[in-house]
């Protein structure tokens, strides 16, 4: 979860203070500033070059979405194709199916992931012994650092046809359940995997918010005779609501991105109707279907809509920030 609260902190603002003392004169012309900052600029150049070549080079590479790409001719020599890829895209059922899957899975993630992470954070926060807490935190953060390849392998070993669960069921004389490779179970499965992998890591930001709740509010509530449940409902949740809202808004902004790797690894086991999301659609039409221009058009469309959504989400989040709910 990337939190895009990256606007300059206000302390940054007075870069060149209008100091009354005629102290070191701030250079005005650009070449004077370049001369002054030459070491800093030299430090920044490698990263800027990388930015220009990779993400920005790729941004220009999107012209392929408007071309009839012929590998032999290359991107520049291939003939222009207008918006034909896009007209075809909007009439493509596979594309709309992938879009529907993506949005459904995103919404399911919001509905199930957030309460799980918040619940775990509340549980951790309420544990008094700090040694126990630290140990549990170490364990629940760990899956975040495992590759999706490993996580998928773990789930197959536990829930697959030859996995632990079905082994136990067979021992108990019950019928096996098909969870892995079953299109109907695919969406619950990916949500559970997501929660298993990221729920612990997701508690970090909630724990920080819980830590900053004003102790006096709890004290006052307890004096008024409110128990644990009422304190949770009337003090804790209202205090961290701004953080909840912020995360929710940012996640809504990323509704078209559910993560590529998890789906790439498991799509073939259930087929594209259940398992295709937008990112895998781009991959499979582009690299397996060999239709690079068409796939790039799908990717560009997703990217543009996603950019608008993320931008809007950040504007809204920023608006909340200005009300003083998410400032340091």
């Amino acid at each position: 979860m990337v939190v895009l609260a990256v606007d300059d902190p206000p302390a940054q603002a007075p870069a060149e203070p209008a100091s009354p003392a005629p102290a070191p004169r701030a250079p005005r012309a650009w070449w004077q500033r370049l001369r002054r900052d030459r070491v800093l600029v030299a430090l920044m150049i490698p990263a800027v070059v990388w930015l220009l070549v990779f993400p920005y080079g790729a941004a220009f590479g999107n012209v392929i979405a408007f071309k009839d790409y012929v590998p032999f001719l290359g991107v520049w020599q291939s003939p222009w194709f207008g918006v034909d890829h896009f007209t075809r895209l909007f009439g493509d059922d596979r594309f709309w199916n992938a879009t529907a899957n993506t949005v459904t899975i995103s919404l399911l993630q919001i509905v199930f992931f957030f309460p799980a992470a918040l619940g775990l954070a509340l549980l951790l926060h309420s544990v008094a012994g700090s040694t126990v807490k630290r140990w549990v935190q170490s364990v629940v953060y760990l899956p975040h650092f495992l590759s999706w390849v490993i996580v998928v392998a773990l789930f197959t070993q536990m829930l697959g046809g030859a996995g632990v669960l079905n082994g136990w069921l067979a021992e108990a004389g019950m019928d096996p359940v098909q969870i892995i490779g079953n299109a109907e179970m695919f969406k619950p499965l990916v949500i559970v995997q997501m929660i298993w992998k990221e729920c612990g890591w997701g508690t970090i930001i909630f724990l920080a918010a819980l830590m900053s709740v004003d102790e006096q509010l709890y004290e006052a509530a307890a004096m008024d005779g409110s128990g644990w449940w009422r304190r949770l409902w009337h003090v804790t949740l209202p205090s961290i609501r701004p953080v909840l809202m912020l995360l929710l808004i940012l996640k809504l902004g990323e509704i078209l991105s559910v993560g590529f790797e998890q789906f790439f690894l498991q799509r073939d086991a259930v087929g594209p109707e259940a398992g295709e999301v937008l990112d895998t659609f781009v991959f499979f039409t582009g690299f397996q279907g060999g239709d690079l221009g068409y796939a790039a058009a799908a990717g560009l469309f997703k990217g543009l809509v996603g950019a608008v959504l993320i931008y809007t989400a950040n504007k809204v989040a920023h608006r909340l920030g200005e009300q003083g709910v998410y400032t340091r």
């Binding site: 990779f54 790729a58 941004a59 590479g61 999107n62 781009v282 950019a307």
Partner: peptide
């Protein structure tokens, strides 16, 4: 830098790069 947050490089154009 911030713009790359808004629109990460697409898979196909990145492959071309």
């Amino acid at each position: 830098v911030l713009f790359t947050f808004l629109m990460p490089a697409g898979m196909i154009p990145l492959f071309l790069v």
